[in-house]
Amino acid sequence: MKWAPHLLPEDRAEYERLLDEALRTASDRPELAAIGRRLDESQLRAMALGAAALISTAAATEYAVYVRVREEHRRPSGASVMASVLGGSGDGAAPGAGFGVVVTVLTPILAGTAALVLLLLGYVLKMLDPPPDLAAPLVTAGWFFAAVTATGLLVAAIGLLVTALRNRPAETAAARGPGGCASDELSRAREAWRHALLERGIVPFLREALTERRPEPGPGGVHPPVSERPRPLPRSAGTGFTGPGPGLAAPETGAE
């Protein structure tokens, strides 16, 4: 099976689903009414799968738009939140926002370390007999830094919560396009590609395959099998397909 270079692997199954849909609903299309009399569904399906690289070019423009929109909506939505929390480098951020974040993060760490060291040293000195005069100030300083650590942790938690709540409406607005929700934009792009691929690629290919002129019988009046007959080749992308006639013919080059 030959796939178009621009058709991503995740979209090849969609191509096959559209092809099966076209074959399943062929009775609703007068131009495909000859299915079963000249070529059956399995033969047409095999031909269309083999010519996937040619058929998919009929909807190359719509497919490029669909892939671009899909990639835009796959970007991590939490990137702006993390940038605001870690660096404060968003639009309109104050120059000192990054320094404030550093202080908020480092204060509990440094204060907690100082509290642990001072309390441990102060209570060890208090165990001496008699305890030195430095023991009580060390314990007092240790408990002071412990209070600073708790306060710093509380401030950091509140800051993260406020930042997350502040960025949620901004992310929701950014995820919405000018015409509505982002999912609507993605759905419209996908449906535009599907419609173009079906109406300008798959259906014209099937129609030309069914209307291809029957080859002359060989020796003994026997027609060659379907697998040995030439397959229709595209005249140009997006304008339908044309059969090559009774013999194998090269595609038109359009040279002047």
Rank of each mutant, 00 (worst) to 15 (best):
P95I: 03
R74F: 09
G221A: 09
A114K: 01
E199F: 00
V101D: 11
S89H: 11
A141M: 09
P131K: 00
P9L: 03
S89E: 12
V85T: 07
D11Y: 03
G142M: 12
A4R: 03
L116A: 12
D129F: 15
A115F: 01
G96I: 01
S183C: 06
P204V: 15
L161F: 07
L121M: 13
V222N: 10
P232H: 14
V102P: 03
A135M: 05
R194F: 13
V139K: 05
L206P: 09
L120A: 13
L197Q: 11
E10N: 10
G88H: 08
Y63Q: 04
P230W: 08
A150W: 06
L106F: 11
A26Y: 08
V155R: 06
L39G: 09
Y123C: 07
G112N: 11
A249P: 03
E216G: 12
L118H: 02
G152K: 06
A146K: 12
V203C: 15
M47Y: 08
I35G: 11
E185L: 08
T107D: 09
V81H: 06
E62R: 08
A189F: 10
D11P: 01
A48E: 15
D91Y: 13
A13P: 00
G201H: 07
R229G: 11
V102A: 15
H223Q: 14
P230D: 03
A53K: 05
L19E: 08
P9M: 02
L19V: 07
R213M: 01
V148H: 07
A175I: 02
S187R: 05
A22Q: 15
L120R: 14
A157F: 11
G100Q: 10
V124S: 12
A147M: 03
T172R: 00
S89Q: 11
G245Q: 11
T163G: 00
T211M: 13
A249G: 08
L119W: 07
V226S: 09
V69N: 08
A182T: 02
A58Y: 07
L186V: 06
E10H: 12
G96F: 00
P95Y: 09
A135K: 04
